[in-house]
Amino acid sequence: MPHRCEVNDQIPALQRAFCEEVCAPELLPFRASLVEDIEAVIAFQEQRVGQHSAYASSGDREESDTETAFRRSLVAQLQRMDLERVRYLLASYLRVRLWKLQRHAAYYQQEAEGGSQTSMGRLSMHEQRFLKAYLDNLATCLHEAFLKHIPESLRGLTDTEKHQSGRNTEIRMVTEPDFSETVMAVAGSPGQLAASVSAEQAAADSASMPEIHCVSYSMVRDDILQEQISLL
């Protein structure tokens, strides 16, 4: 009798989270509960694979059990393969977040110091620790290689260029994510996106595909951070 295939909805959720993280120019809120669930799935799957492998490799069994052992060995192999794919997905999700965090590390740190709940809420505890240590390491390196050799008043990351007209230009060396980047936004429900994008654009886009819009990230940023709109 065939066993019912148990569909795990956490894997597609992780796939979606990974895709959104790749598409969004800034870090999205960390999916803590999802990652915890996936870690539990991995632990459970490892246990199952271990059981199947142990049974398949044990030598002292009766003749009638040989077929069962073969079947278990096959199941273990398939489960190991599946396990590798889940691990790959989780590692990719964490890796892409780490890369984005490094790219704009000073920006996220400044946001966090500014008391922005959004910024701290979007980083996991481990990512917050990583960010702090990463910036410390970066600051030490820049100080040792260059900044300690120049006057203290020049060591900041924001300079003000003065003009004779009295107008001053602020030059910031802290790079920010490009919020004007174009993204493909998918509405959770019909008409949801129309409130965020301009009426003309929504009308133009809705002619071809009503639920997907090609828009600037800044227009849908709030909805994306609140997980009301997803990215494609």
């Binding site: 794919r85 790959y88 890796r95 240590a133």
Partner: peptide, 25 residues
């Protein structure tokens, strides 16, 4: 060392983890 510490905290060595989707065992 930082990457190693992060990897051990999340239970995955991100540098050793596959960079392309696994197709065969």
């Amino acid at each position: 060392a930082l990457l190693a510490a992060y990897g051990s905290a999340v239970g995955l060595d991100l540098r050793s983890a596959l960079l392309v989707p696994p197709k065969e065992e």
